[in-house]
Amino acid sequence: MEYLRMDAVDDLSDAIDATRELLLPVQVGLWIKLAIVVFFIGGSLGMSGSVPAGDVGPVADETAVDAPIDEIPDKIIALAAVIVVILLALWFIYNALGAIMEFVFVESLRSRAVHVRRYMGQNLWRGLRLFGFRLVLGAIALGIVAIPALSVVLGTSTPEAALESLIPFVLLAIPVYLIYAILMRFTSEFVVPVMLLEERGVLSAWRRFWPTLTGNLGQFVVYLVLVWILQFVINFAAGFVILFGVVAIAIPFIILGVLAAMLGEIGLWIAGALAVVALVVVLLFVALVQMPIRTYFQYYALLLLGDRNPELDLISELRTTIRADSDRHDENGRNGRNGPPETDNADQSDIGGNHWDESDDTDTPLWDQSDDSSDWDSQDEEDDADGNDNRGW
């Protein structure tokens, strides 16, 4: 009986080795740049703070009693409208940058060198198309639930009847969100690498990935289950690290802010500046904690994708390296259990294909060519020219 290869399980340990190859020994520049990228693409940071559902009713009732809408000054309404517009604009900018950073992240893991400006310039249009795809898919998912729910609510006569009529739509929202979450994960983890590797659009990359998905459905189902379980456990542990870290960071800033506030009006400005600095430090700390986790799960997805379809393998050389190292410590061998057959390095590099070549200056955006002395990329380019595996600034 032929041995059934469960790459979705075997690749868990290989992803650890791949993450170790990239992040160890620790290089401050590489860690910080990857943390900034992860800040934009998200690292399972959880839902943003909002008013709990149970508190919405009392807040609305109090507002209705104490401040009728007709008595609210026009300036307050205008200010609220401006704030909403600014928040929406920031949301669009953040998510658009996040879509572009998806390609920066995958390319950084593939090349094991982080050139943020260069990769952003090379993938600007792909990132914007990914952002548009996410907007459309999110609008469809929201519309499936929200539009019929709103029509039913508007047809009810009492608040109690409206709440009762929403129950079926709450139940409908569960499978809709589940499907949406799976599509978003597969798009980020598998379709984005295909877009990057073969220079495709979102829909074209989905069509390219679809036969691999349907032909190995069991592998990807196991992948989903393992990822959800691992993310729950790892993020639970990371949550404690983040909590204690945030408290440790906040204490000195709070002390300095209180002392500054005692200086009078100028002290309040100093305290405000300290609050901004504290927020930046906290966000960077959280991103640094999440970065290795996000790196691990992305490598896990890339390994599974390449094992199931060698033509879509972005990290063939890294795969060969980590499995050759595992062979020296595993008497059963792991190089031949899955993935593309072992060949020489020249052939392996051809499988991944479409590597960004340092000599391809024609695709480099103008803002990347004009500032060769930037600390952001220049040191990387010098190390690449020397043939070193750059991992610093």
Results as ranks from 00 to 15, higher is better:
185 R>W: 13
155 G>T: 04
141 A>Q: 01
156 T>G: 04
246 V>K: 05
149 A>R: 06
171 L>I: 11
239 G>R: 06
226 L>P: 05
200 R>Q: 14
191 V>Y: 10
151 S>K: 14
133 F>D: 02
168 P>N: 05
136 V>D: 07
189 E>M: 00
258 V>Q: 02
247 V>I: 14
178 L>W: 08
117 R>V: 06
118 R>I: 11
261 A>M: 12
129 R>G: 14
215 G>N: 09
203 L>W: 00
191 V>P: 07
198 E>D: 15
263 L>K: 10
178 L>Y: 10
187 T>G: 11
154 L>N: 11
210 W>F: 13
200 R>M: 09
136 V>M: 14
216 N>G: 08
141 A>E: 02
123 N>D: 04
218 G>M: 13
173 A>E: 12
232 F>S: 11
137 L>G: 09
189 E>K: 00
240 F>L: 10
186 F>G: 06
171 L>K: 09
126 R>D: 14
178 L>D: 09
187 T>F: 03
154 L>R: 13
222 V>E: 13
184 M>T: 02
144 I>A: 08
218 G>S: 13
133 F>H: 06
118 R>P: 04
220 F>N: 06
161 A>L: 00
174 I>R: 11
239 G>D: 06
239 G>L: 10
120 M>E: 08
128 L>E: 11
203 L>H: 00
220 F>R: 06
172 L>M: 00
145 V>I: 10
213 L>V: 15
256 L>Q: 13
117 R>W: 03
156 T>M: 12
170 V>L: 04
145 V>Q: 07
211 P>H: 12
226 L>R: 04
261 A>F: 01
211 P>M: 06
150 L>I: 12
243 L>R: 11
229 I>S: 08
246 V>Y: 01
234 I>D: 03
261 A>K: 05
154 L>A: 15
217 L>D: 04
209 F>M: 07
256 L>P: 02
256 L>T: 10
166 L>F: 05
186 F>S: 12
259 L>P: 01
160 E>K: 01
133 F>S: 11
145 V>M: 03
142 L>Q: 09
240 F>T: 07
214 T>Y: 01
165 S>V: 10
212 T>R: 05
121 G>N: 09
133 F>V: 05
192 V>F: 01
252 P>A: 14
183 L>F: 00
226 L>M: 08
208 R>F: 06
196 L>F: 05
151 S>D: 12
237 A>N: 02
150 L>K: 06
234 I>H: 03
206 W>C: 06
202 V>A: 07
250 A>C: 02
161 A>K: 03
233 V>E: 02
232 F>Y: 08
171 L>E: 03
143 G>A: 13
177 Y>L: 11
263 L>P: 10
238 A>N: 07
133 F>Q: 03
131 F>N: 01
159 P>M: 01
242 I>P: 04
248 A>V: 12
224 L>I: 00
197 L>S: 15
163 L>I: 05
169 F>R: 07
142 L>I: 08
169 F>M: 08
120 M>R: 10
261 A>T: 11
222 V>T: 15
139 A>M: 13
206 W>I: 13
175 P>Y: 01
245 G>Q: 04
172 L>K: 01
241 V>I: 14
